[in-house]
Design a protein around this nucleic acid. Structure first.
Lengths: 229, 229
DNA sequence: AGAAATTTAGACACTCTTGTCTAATTCGTC
DNA sequence: GACGAATTAGACAAGAGTGTCTAAATTTCT
């Protein structure tokens, strides 16, 4: 009874494939039902696997949960660092390039499946597993924020932005980019591509108004350095 | 908290007092354990009440949960509107007054007990009770955001700010004010007063850099229109 | 094809929780 | 102090979920 999957999707075979299938399903179910509300039979059904197989692979419900969170943290981190590597260090059009960066970050790291699941699990179960989520905090925000801040620092140093505190600027950048998505996030929804673009556009525009050198298109005034660095 | 031992704290008496006590405890427990993880005995113990009394008052677990969310929504709304009424319509020092407003909003509406509980319940159970949280969305964000936006619109119209879209500006204002508190919120923590002040100070500074009229420091110069209305 | 490993369905004991019921106690009010 | 309403502790049945166990079936590898 491997639920009602589409006939053309052949169920994955092999030990490792089952493991992945279980992790996928468990993430989905834990996220939707919370740890206490999830039950192993649900996960087994959604994974197309027998209950005993889950116990064989992961021991018990709690170990499975911990494995999920570790896995999600790792994958999300990878995605974030990959996206950070596309940060516009030498922007041709500062505002446009930052908007594109913000959109990438949102779509590929925050609004995607993994990002949504990890966020929800942290919010829902964070207080119950202090060590686990302390670990997340170190491996996740503890490493990604400095990396993003470093990119803004470089951009400022190259003369494209006027920033005093790159850490603050980095946080404000993403806060602005997400400003219009908060209510959707709250309810566990996934913003449309258009909403992501809108929010990023408005947010980055404000960010550039606050931190940009006074020279972009609209306000052509006097400015000294070309700041090519 | 008020279990068996509390020599000086006399357990509340009277029908209504019990009702309040139950609501308090239930909010706490649902928030900490999630709906599925909470059980009635926990709530009864925390409320200093017998299990049967909870059933007498609220019928069943789900009805109790719904009552909690409605109650929290109402109280949070009241707090938010009360705080909105302190919005600086005629600021003496724009930045300082907006910082103070942001701090009030955070401390009294977002970081306080009710705000924290409501946020967590929405995040955790939002998907499970679509109609209930649709109601929240209408009564909460649906009414508060326009109210805040209206205040910014007025401030802009009076010449203190240069804002195109007040709705966007309102969201960005609070996003900036909270930018540095996000990780703490994620894990269900309560920021210290100092963290709230820091975040608000940085956030409002950026907001004013983006939307302030270009006549820094020397405020109270000529703002030709008195714009009082 | 055959051996080893894995997966499966189902039964099982055990625990926990919900919601009801009852009889005794306490409270609010006269 | 006495009456009616509310509260209490505890027992209870019913249901759900966890984790174990078994024997059969299936997959994987040689």
């Amino acid at each position: 009874m491997k639920l009602n999957v589409s006939p053309d999707i052949i169920p994955p075979r092999g030990h490792e494939a089952k493991r992945v299938s279980i992790m996928d399903a468990a993430g989905e179910v834990f996220c939707r039902e919370s740890f206490a509300g999830a039950n192993i039979d649900m996960i087994a059904a959604e994974a197309g696997v027998s209950r005993q197989t889950i116990y064989n692979h992961h021991g018990d419900k709690e170990k499975l949960f911990v494995a999920i969170v570790r896995d999600l943290t790792e994958r999300c981190n990878a995605g974030i660092f990959a996206t950070i590597s596309t940060f516009p260090d030498q922007p041709k059009d500062l505002e446009a390039d930052l908007i594109a960066f913000a959109v990438r970050m949102n779509r590929k790291c925050i609004c995607n499946r993994d990002g949504k699941f990890l966020r929800k699990l942290i919010q829902t179960e964070g207080e119950r597993y202090p060590e686990l989520f302390a670990e997340w905090r170190e491996q996740g925000p503890g490493r990604t924020w400095p990396a993003i801040a470093a990119r803004f620092a470089r951009l400022a140093h190259a003369g494209f932005l006027d920033i005093e505190d790159p850490d603050v600027a980095a946080r404000q950048f993403l806060a602005l980019a997400n400003a219009e998505l908060q209510t959707t996030f709250m309810l566990g929804g996934t913003p449309t591509d258009d909403e992501v673009l809108q929010s990023a556009t408005h947010g980055v525009r404000t960010f550039v108004r606050a931190f940009g050198k006074r020279q972009p298109a609209a306000h052509a005034q006097k400015h000294s350095a070309l700041a090519g660095g």
